[in-house]
Amino acid sequence: MKLAVMGAGAVGRSVVELADEYGHDVTAFADSTGAAVDADGIDAEAALEHKERVGSVGEADAAAALGADYDCLVEATPTTLGDAHPGFEHVEAALERDRHVVLANKGPVAERYDDVMALADAGAGEVRFEATVGGAIPVIATIEGMDPSHVTAARGVLNGTANFVLSRMAAEGLGYEHVLAEAQDLGVAEADPTFDVDGTDAALKCAILANVLHGGGYSLDDVDVQGIRDVPSSALELAAEDGRTVRLIGEVTADGDVRVGPRLVTEHDTLAVTGTQNIVQLETTNAGRLNISGRGAGGPETASAVLADVGRLPER
């Protein structure tokens, strides 16, 4: 399949680097300021080198990538809230041309799921978004495989940064600020960790899960969100004395409630993963409880979810 990759962050780059291994050609690659377009397949190395040197992946106009010859658009620009600009417009442009779309960007399916699905229904292109929830973990494919009607609830640890901070605080008895600084040094937390520690990132993933489980209608506004900043290390000590610990858990209930917040779980609970690990637990009608865990972030990890989605698309 011919891919147009929008976004040259860690995920976009990895998709471009790994596409060939999965049997696909990248015919367009764009970041916010430029693009490389070649119907016979772009030179990935040259594009990345161009980005290193000039700041953009190519000399072509960024918009040219949208009009290029491709079968599937990979939307890997940064997640934005509200109108999900410009990711949503990229998705719209591809679907209006009857092209498939694979998202790594959470914005369009977390904030405008119904709009995206309406566009997909109106044309011949399909939309997939495995990479938006749980990085490398095949959450959406599992739900799809069971059929959403057989999955009654989902919960899990969906943000590696928050989980790293909480599990380090509990293990070392260190304060929030100290562990956060350490996480930033290690590159586990971004310079501005707000999105992760305030629960927004996990909430977006939960909105997406709720859309899949309950047939749409959810956005960030529908999620009850509480972050981890207000969890003092003394609270973690008290939890530990009692054989428990605290994790930032996202939850989509059978009733359709969606919430993210720090929750008490027993120390040996399946959900009490440590470090940057993610886990998703699904309640099903006939199969009991399913647990899937793995790496929730990272360029190649998330790109593998993107490319698995590309592999699930019908040939055009």
Partner: peptide, 12 residues
């Protein structure tokens, strides 16, 4: 005050 609630699982 901030509350850390328990995760009440098993709503199958």
């Amino acid at each position: 005050l901030h509350v850390v609630e328990p995760l009440v699982e098993g709503e199958a």
